[in-house]
Design a binder for these strands. Sequence first.
DNA 1: CTAAATACCAAGTGATTTACTAGGTAATAC
DNA 2: GTATTACCTAGTAAATCACTTGGTATTTAG
Lengths: 155, 155
Amino acid sequence: MRLSTKGRYAVTAMLDLALNGKNGPVTLAEISENQGISLSYLEQLFAALRNKDLVRGVRGPGGGYYLGKSADEISIANIICAVDEWVEFTRCGGRQNCSGGARCLTHTLWDDLSSEIFNFLADISLGDLVRRNLGKKEEEDSPLSVVGDSNSQAA
Amino acid sequence: MRLSTKGRYAVTAMLDLALNGKNGPVTLAEISENQGISLSYLEQLFAALRNKDLVRGVRGPGGGYYLGKSADEISIANIICAVDEWVEFTRCGGRQNCSGGARCLTHTLWDDLSSEIFNFLADISLGDLVRRNLGKKEEEDSPLSVVGDSNSQAA
DNA sequence: CTAAATACCAAGTGATTTACTAGGTAATAC
DNA sequence: GTATTACCTAGTAAATCACTTGGTATTTAG
């Protein structure tokens, strides 16, 4: 699993689309304005998202983008994998002199960890994030946050 | 949370160190040989790890590296944060015209998600991975894997 | 005391990625 | 028909990646 700023841009843009696309398509110009991402960069990201059927574009005036499927069917892992091409880390494709050595021991461990992270992100859907956000908007000061307090201990 | 190949190199190297460092220090030359990582690149990674007290170096013949603390006290998040400098994603540092707009809504959501991923990795220690690996070595074909089958569905 | 082994350090490098700009073409609503 | 939108291609400065080169500092073995 590769998790870079590019993936964050994509997740952020998709979140914006999910939040604002309730009635009618959302233009990339709006997302660009909302999220402060350059229009052309968004076009590149959405080309990748379109290839994976995560979004659907409509041309012409009044056009824009819809989600390609329901927000509940789109996981964060889907989004990140669409724009951040998966790169194979281990050089030994199972074969080679690597098998059996101490080298593949850690490779296997890393692969397991990698799967765990992937599954973690695959379990969170765009719909989850939207509901989470709406809940926050309405309760505002209710201490019932699903995601924990998240006072940026991730720094 | 930034998760790139650089972080994987660091985690892999630390895993190698934890597995082979039971008696006496492990040299970077050994890790380089075991894991197929260039010696000088390892030196750079270990410089960062040393700064965070995750490893301790011993010079001279018979020298090498020890873990800076017990494997149970070192989380995967610790390792990745040591080598992959944390980059702030949102441009609005809380202030600015951003607050209140639809922009910060998704920013907040991303921050929450980011925290979740961080906490997830902060909950896995090097010691966990080592025990996981030893378990696998001894049971080999027992279907009691802690991490699931992980037949690379993360691809 | 000397030589070898190791950590430690600094500079540079080609390849790739990032986020962007520029300059289009294609389809559609009005 | 014209404006608006998606869609496409090429290029680019800056950063990052993984590595090479060429050292210096410290410690052990002999």
